[in-house]
């Protein structure tokens, strides 16, 4: 009966993951391997293809007021602003997912905020890996593909922004998790009882213990040939914290040195006093 409860929990998390996130790993992998039957994504590999691509690839955030003034800014700044808007959208999606985790909305409201503040970037970089291969990353809901070399060719410090995420994604993708595994994994990340400033740790740890059991069983059932997958995946949580720390340091540097650039208020809120 306990196993049945854990399976039901994993199923519930997978369902809300499908409802909360716009582009799943299954869809992204189909696009990346050309198996969708739809047209292939537009490849952005240099400044020319970036300019051409802008006509084909629609950006949701173009409808956001205040974006008009961005058009006169340097390419690096414009690209970064689009990344930011996608991140803000991702925070909204992750919040919706978090609220669907059984027990989450019963936690102290300030603790919910703290869990999201510390968890969202770790979740963003785990799910971003689904959109990446060693050569590039899908953008704009899979309509475009931006190459890793192009991102590396941007001027400093923008060229340093994505490379650590590619390095992580290559290792993370070798674990071959699918969306149903990722759903439980990101619930485990969100419910981390060791985030700084939590008021009431015990109920968070209790919820996470249950999620960890659900994750262990999920991996056993879904990957019977990979006996150490659970342990390997838990190790990735340490790598994620390192990536987030470096990411936040880079954003703080950008905020100081790139005076043309506005950091979105939601991202400022999340980054402030983070690490």
């Amino acid at each position: 009966p306990e196993c049945a409860d854990l399976r039901a929990l994993a199923k519930h998390l997978y369902d809300s993951y499908l409802k909360s996130f716009s582009l799943t790993k299954a869809k992204a992998r189909a696009i990346l391997t050309g198996k969708t039957g739809e047209k292939a994504p537009f490849v952005i590999y240099d400044m020319n293809s970036l300019m051409t691509g802008q006509q084909f690839v629609s950006y949701k955030q173009n409808s956001v007021p205040g974006q008009g003034q961005e058009q006169n800014k340097e390419v690096e700044i414009q690209l970064f602003q689009r990344c930011q808007f996608r991140s803000v959208e991702a925070v909204r999606e992750i919040t919706e997912f978090a609220k669907s985790i059984p027990g989450f909305i019963g936690l102290d409201l300030n603790d919910q905020v703290t869990l999201l503040k510390y968890g969202v970037h770790e979740v963003i970089f785990s799910t971003l890996a689904s959109l990446m291969n060693k050569d590039g990353v899908l953008i704009s809901d899979g309509q475009g593909f931006m190459t890793r070399e192009f991102l590396k060719s941007l001027r400093k410090p923008f060229c340093e922004l994505m490379e650590p995420k590619f390095e992580f994604s290559v290792k993370f993708n070798s674990l071959e998790l699918d969306d149903s595994d990722l759903a439980v994994f990101i619930a485990v990340i969100i419910l981390s009882g060791d985030r700084p400033g939590l008021v009431n740790v015990k109920p968070i740890e209790d919820l996470q213990d249950n999620m960890l059991q659900a994750l262990e069983l999920q991996l056993k059932m879904n990957h019977p040939d990979a006996p150490h997958l659970f342990a390997k995946l838990l190790q990735k949580m340490t790598d994620l914290r390192q990536i987030v720390t470096e990411h936040v340091q880079l954003l703080q540097l950008l905020k100081k040195t790139e005076l043309e650039m506005n950091i979105h208020p939601l991202l400022q809120e999340i980054m402030k006093d983070l690490y």
Binding site: G66, R92, T95, K99, L116, P265, L266, E269
Partner: peptide
């Protein structure tokens, strides 16, 4: 609470658009 007002709002409202 003031420090994280957008996060609070996201948690308390369902799918509210994030304004700038």
């Amino acid at each position: 609470k003031e420090k994280h007002k957008i996060l609070h709002r996201l948690l308390q409202n369902s799918s509210s658009p994030v304004d700038l």
